[in-house]
Amino acid sequence: MPQRVSIFVTCIVDQLFPNAGMAMATVLERLGFSIDFPEAQTCCGQPAFNSGYRDEARTVASHTLKVLEGADYVVVPSGSCTSMMSHHYEELFAPGDARHHAAERLSPKIYEFSRFLTEVAQVEDVGARLETVATYHDSCHALRELKIKEAPRRLLANVKGLDLREMDAAEECCGFGGTFSVKFPGVSGGMARTKIDSILRTGASTVISIDSSCLMQLQGAISRAGLPIRTMHLAEVLASR
């Protein structure tokens, strides 16, 4: 029985990394899910929330709550945006507010992609194949707010041809942090370079994450340094055959 899942692709995947979104849809379809892409989706509102603009974050959150209202499952190719919707939406609205209840109802239906695969679809081997030496970067919000640590690693362990190597600083922040990356560019860039040093020590040629924003930060710094390393979203790896 093919279940219906809604996907929330995030603004950054929509505009900059659509292949990650398409790959996520492909993997879900191969597993027999039917995909719903609510057209009215925009952004989760995190940029405003993290910048201290609570009213503006509420405006965007209200919209997103409406867009995702009837969904059974919402699958998101990002730990950070998932956390915004499943953890912070409730904080934005007072307990008596109807939108607070809407956020409470939505929260358990929202899944970051790797967690959806291992917990709802209950698969760890999606039949992917990719010949590469890779390392996995824990994105901070997935790791510390959503407690996602093992799911992506288990999925990657089952990708044929993929040699997964842990880096010593897997849990260290890449330095993106949304507007932090442009408010404190020197610090943010320095953090990216420290992370890249750890990546280099693994000998990996591919860096994998479940957050495109981290990958944008890392690929931007890798490209600036002229290093022969590519970044891939987990979905792109799992869609490879």
Binding site: V9, V13, D14, Q15, L16, F17, P18, N19, G21, M22, E39, P185, G186, S188, G189, A192, M216, Q217, Q219, G220, A221, S223, R224
Partner: peptide, 14 residues
Amino acid sequence: SQRDLPAPAEKSFR
């Protein structure tokens, strides 16, 4: 000042 910048994708996901 620190990193290269991703260009918008050829086509959006939408």
